[in-house]
Design a protein around this nucleic acid. Structure first.
Lengths: 345, 345
DNA sequence: GTTAGCACTCACTCATATAGAGTGCTAATA
DNA sequence: TATTAGCACTCTATATGAGTGAGTGCTAAC
């Protein structure tokens, strides 16, 4: 169990390190008025904190640096929410003032502002396309044996895929199919589309069975919308401003990571509502060892539909970022609900 | 005028520096069998070459390094094409074997292979969307006052925009308009669409003039497809492997440049057919001062429809890259002609 | 015209000295 | 007993100087 003084010292140490990026020593700490103890006393407590794994030294006679466990403790127990200034709230609200229709635009702009306010890199996971609903389906033939399938969703998003048409299918066959889908499958979630498609079309078009299977196969393959998250960045290069990434090797691996997150399955699974903080190795990726990612979900009703994240060095300003994300996610949820949920009441 | 020996020395110096990235000295050069002269002789010629601006020293007693002018001369006068191995040609051809339908896929894959073969970063400028032709147009209403316009082009590409519908327009008004467009404007280049749209619809729908203008305005604005080049990268991080970019500051500015080229207007204007080399400051951008960009266009008939580029350090292997781009651009032109030009004869 | 020789320059490496910030431990103090 | 002062020690960072090696320019010899 930590004594009050140890708690204080841990907190001040983390705060100081977050600010300066320099190992903090006992003498330095004792100069702060929040810490009315002599360097020796502080040293003793720091030694204890180190023994318990909350602090670390970079070398035998250096000051202390928070360990991952230290950050974890700090984040779990010492995170006093920071007040967001009115000005900043105004900036966030400005996103929604223009009454943009396309959710993509809103998300892009959110990313930009979030990064501007934090000076870290922001990541927005676009709405999961698979949760959008079919509004209109159509097929446009391109050549004799290929066509493009187009799905418009209720959010105004358009998905399109080229697929091949088995020979012997006529234009009218296809037209019938399209009509059928538009009659029966409007309102269906995109990820249910392949299964439903099969059920509906099979029941109705049973007559020309063999051929239909070919078409369905090809179409289904095209319409299987893999959960490839669309990722929007704000301030992608911000991270490189942090002193901890002054080494090209590290910088490279982070940039690489960023360019490929969307291909890494389930990296941002929304397993929890609200705000989530993953520190260093908790991110389960080598390139992210020196980074923390703070994620917030935004929801419509009870359904989580996307998430926003800030990625910074483990030494990032947790207080501020958490508070900002909080405001942002609430606002985003509210505004997107208006746009998306409206039609379904 | 350069003597033969000076030409030789310049060439060997550039070649050597390209290979080793180390300043080349007279003693070192004289050891090569292509250069049967004593260090002293070489020193004299090198001094002359320096005076003429083809070589530079990094400090008073260092070996020589090609200057930008030196590279320029080398590229203009000493570029012997390099043989591309059968194996490599095979790799390039493999792109087209799968008979992909979507040009985007072809371009992506080309970028990847090009970067793999060169170990530099490749950039593909996607086909200029504005040069695609309308195949099918449709409008899907979203809410009372907004709809999404969808254009499918002959290449299977789908463009879509949300636009607002002035009140008082009914579904049938819009349907008529869509039909009209599909009757009259199929085959039109995307960039001509706004003007033609106006001409056609005005002539036919003159009756409800005032209201129509509102709709046209909104639609035109949405359909004005700005020349925002789509840029595909292959081996984006390759550049960071080059020793000249071992400094985070440089790395950052290059990464930044790459993420924003498509927003810099006319950076890749295709003002010339064939292969074009821009060295260092010739790129007119600070971040590119230490880079060269070699561009090749690919064409359909006489029309240039896109370009491929390799970006590397000024010290890049010009011979090899030029030869590879040559093969690649010819192949791409051929294959894309098949896909895109086919339908129009 | 070409080359050998020589004095000179500069970057780089390595060892050494010094200053500064920090620590751990022990003994004195409140 | 909890806190603090004092002291010896450790380690980094920085500066300095010597030595090495690759390079140059110039001059004189070939």
């Amino acid at each position: 169990m930590l004594t009050n003084r140890q708690l204080l010292i841990l907190q001040v140490t983390v705060d100081d390190f977050i600010e300066t990026a320099q190992p903090v020593g006992s003498r330095q700490l004792s100069k702060k008025e929040e810490v009315p103890f002599s360097p020796a006393t502080i040293r003793n407590d720091m030694a204890d904190l180190e023994e318990m794994g909350f602090l670390e030294k970079t070398h035998t006679s250096s000051g202390r640096v928070p360990s991952q466990k230290g950050y974890r403790y700090y984040v779990d127990n010492m995170l006093t929410p920071q007040r967001i200034s009115n000005n900043e709230i105004k900036q966030i609200r400005s996103i929604f003032e223009e009454r943009m229709v396309e959710t993509e635009q809103i998300i892009r702009k959110s990313a930009a502002i979030l990064s501007e306010l934090t000076n870290y890199t922001s990541i927005m996971l676009g709405l999961d396309v698979r949760k959008h609903r079919v509004k209109r389906f159509s097929i446009v033939p391109l050549t004799d044996d290929s066509a493009v399938a187009i799905i418009v969703t209720d959010s105004g998003h358009v998905e399109n895929r080229v697929f091949s048409i088995p020979e012997s299918f006529t234009a009218s066959d296809i037209e019938r199919m399209v009509n059928l889908i538009n009659e029966r499958l409007v309102g269906v979630h995109l990820h249910e589309l392949p299964t439903k498609l099969e059920a509906v079309t099979l029941a109705v078009l049973r007559q020309n069975n063999g051929r239909l299977n070919d078409l369905l196969g090809s179409l289904n393959k095209a319409l299987t919308i893999e959960h490839e998250d669309k990722v929007y960045y704000g301030g992608k290069m911000q991270l490189l401003n942090q002193p901890e990434f002054n080494d090209v090797e590290k910088a490279r691996s982070i940039m690489y990571w960023m360019d490929h997150v969307n291909q890494m399955p389930g990296l941002f699974h929304l397993d929890q509502k609200g705000i989530q903080i993953r520190i260093g190795t908790e991110n389960n990726h080598l390139a992210m060892e020196d980074c923390s990612i703070i994620t917030a979900s935004y929801d419509i009703g009870e359904e989580q539909i996307g998430s926003i994240a800030i990625i910074g060095p483990t030494r990032m300003d947790y207080k501020r970022v958490v508070s900002l994300l909080d405001v942002m996610s609430v606002d985003l949820s509210r505004e997107l609900s208006k746009i998306l949920h409206g039609p379904h009441g």
